[in-house]
Design a protein around this nucleic acid. Structure first.
Lengths: 196, 196, 196, 196
DNA sequence: GATGAATGAGCATTCATTCAT
DNA sequence: AATGAATGAATGCTCATTCAT
């Protein structure tokens, strides 16, 4: 009796990715079992292997596609903005917003780096470096233009990124502040932190 | 042939804690096996159970003793300081410094919260809240005194904590900046981020 | 995209048999997977079942058709020969030659008997007995005619068969001796082994 | 509840080896499952791993210790014999006898060579070559002494070995001939096969 | 005749934990 | 306090086979 209702083809892969993301976020990659995943998707364990090559590859695919989507979204967000201050504000607002909306992806992309193989690891870290580079560039431009006080652009960027990223560990929708409020507050803090 | 070198008495527990910390930091709690741990310590797996009750308890003990040490150290660091600005600076400098020196403990205390049982979890989270509370108090004092611009003391505190904590994911001794340099830079950024 | 090159019609079955033979010879029946086989043939696993009923049947078919071909070839080789000595020599030369040329079939026919079902097993073993019978008859004729010294025709036949069959485990074309050299040497040894 | 009655320490390893040998002989290495093996021994599957490193290593250990025992036994059997004819007769009688008594070890040592890893394979094959070398030496000595007709000592040796080894595929105790009868018959055939 | 996705059983191996010695 | 052997459950993965398309 092959083929259960409602689970054919690429929809299954989508479902696997969605459920995989949630389970890794919730329990961690090591702690998530393919049995859990299969149950969530509504198929047998063995059937997973019609869609993924290994558990390891599932993780890598998730991280890679997250990083690529993130980078593309950032570039779009920065597209219209010019001037270091406006660009920094746009970066901060975008980052907070994205990290609230996609907190699962963002979280596992930080926490599961160590679960990658030696081959996969540098690929993701490199994509991350591209992302960080955008912020470092903004800070360096601002420093040259004399509008930011930046002792070390990279270290400052890591600080700002950490400040903005923290949001995905504590923010819960429906709390005291809206996502927009938080974005505004943190954008303000980020800007002030590099003020002359 | 009982008793291999280096494994007698209370020293063994110490060795277990030290090795456990390192292994959890490196591979994550779920991914670390007691077999690895025993091998690292130089005893057989079964012997671990003369020193710990369960794997779970090992984790809890590590996190709990870390949080208690951290809190005590913070109180000592803030002891002589008065005035919101000086207290905030002292907090920031202490936090960065501690998070560089004890990065393993700090890291697993963030990343392995989810591996705790429902009974253990609130104990650690509560200790953490005490730590955060110190910073929130400083910010609220500063806001009341009119020297800090703080829209929401808790959210601002989370931001500053994230900014300062980030250090333990990227700092490597021997890099471009010394620990003291980084502490100074991040203290400055933290102070400016709440400037009026 | 149905139908990849090289996989239409009855040619596919041929390709399956050829690849199956090679894979069983190389890895053993149990160790060969239908996935490997399908990949070798250039079709999907499911498609195999348009040509074979089960993996088990593939093995049986291979062994059965091998044994039938072998028997027919033997009868042809013995056709013109008369007299125990000439018939024994003809048998030995044929056996060595065939076992060099078709060593895969021969090998799996010995080694995979145990992978047959209780229904299939006696069919193949019976065909084998027919083959052995030819040699036993020659030996008994020779004994009766007083030209062979044979204590027990069956046991002697098993010995000669083993001697001649061994060739398929070590013979490599291009070695010190040609196939014809080996056939001559072993024929000679077989004849001498039953000399009065 | 650790430790079931009757299964402690090195006795368990012995039991594993004994049962492993039987199961590999019966079903082949690939087809034997560690579940079967554990059941046979009367322990849980996981407990096997207190005694063997992997399934693969079990096979290797069996083959290696068989070959070493075989070699030692051969040397002992040849110890007192001198002269090519007497030595060949001693070799043949020993070989047949050993291959009847230890047919399981002998059989799997032939049939499971292909299940060895690339590292294990040459170790066993090398031991085998040492064994074959003993026979080749005898034949070469005999040829030099003018008492054997040997066109190619190695190829002749392979033939004789095959002739003698065959016994382990068909001999059943209690049949028409005793082990001693078969040994005598095959020793005679082997000697005659190289007669001048 | 071929495909791709499914099934369910099975595999070798690892794990935390227990306990007689 | 340490060992070594046991347990039983779990893990990631593979397999022969089925079948709607």
């Amino acid at each position: 009796m092959a083929r259960t209702a409602g689970s054919h083809g690429p929809k299954t892969l989508e479902a696997i990715n969605r459920a995989g993301l949630r389970l890794i976020y919730e329990h961690g990659f090591e702690a998530m079992s393919l049995r859990q995943l299969a149950a969530e998707v509504g198929i047998q364990v063995g059937s997973l292997y019609n869609h993924i090559r290994t558990k390891q590859d599932l993780l890598f695919g998730l991280l890679q596609s997250h990083m690529e989507t993130l980078l593309a979204a950032l570039d779009q967000a920065l597209a219209g903005e010019s001037g270091p201050e406006r660009r920094l504000a746009a970066f901060a607002a975008f980052h907070v917003d994205y990290h609230i909306v996609r907190k699962e992806e963002v979280f596992i992309c930080y926490s599961e780096l160590r679960s990658l193989t030696p081959e996969q690891y540098p690929v993701i870290v490199d994509l991350r470096r591209h992302y960080e580079r955008r912020l470092i560039d903004i800070l360096e431009d601002g420093a040259r233009a004399g509008c930011f006080a930046v002792a070390d652009a990279a270290v400052t960027a890591y600080g700002i990124l950490a400040l903005l990223t923290g949001v995905c560990t504590w923010f819960r929708p429906g709390g005291r502040m809206s996502a927009a409020d938080v974005a505004a507050l943190y954008t303000d803090m980020a800007l002030k932190s590099v003020k002359i």
